[in-house]
Amino acid sequence: MKGIARSMLTTLSTFARKPVTRNYPDYHRPLPRTDRAFPLLLWDHEIDEPFCTGCHACERACPVECMTVLMKDNPNHKSVGGTSSRRKIIDKFWVDYARCMRCNICVEVCNFDAIAMNNTWTGHEMSVYDRKDLVVDLEQLLTQSRAKEIDEWVPIIGQTND
């Protein structure tokens, strides 16, 4: 009975300790900046267009083939009297969030730092009623960055974490 008494005292000691519950929908734990949810595209506020040039690097590197990328000639390019130095720009972009396995490879292979993993709670709370709604298009991918709702973190592979 000594051991049983000891285990009962152990549970009693936890009775006196503070609860550890984080009351989730009311309280959102602050996420670390490195947190990875789903990939999204970044917005170049200086020129007011996406960073993405539609180079297909991420599409080719994706292990689960969840991305579809189409590029077009940039209507805002300098050669046609615009302000941008990007000759090509993203036309259409779909990511199937239901397939994405959040491996971060698309971020690593991007030459223009145009894609980042969502590190906000919006990226985690993605429940929808229809599986089709998880295929997001270019508009949805850009919304958060365009509205400056995200402090994006694009890791430099093999180097820093700041």
Binding site: M1, K2, G3, I4, R6, S7, L9, T10, T11
Partner: peptide
């Protein structure tokens, strides 16, 4: 303390 010596667990 909870499990290791608990007679019933043993």
């Amino acid at each position: 303390t909870m499990l290791t010596e608990n007679e019933i667990f043993v």
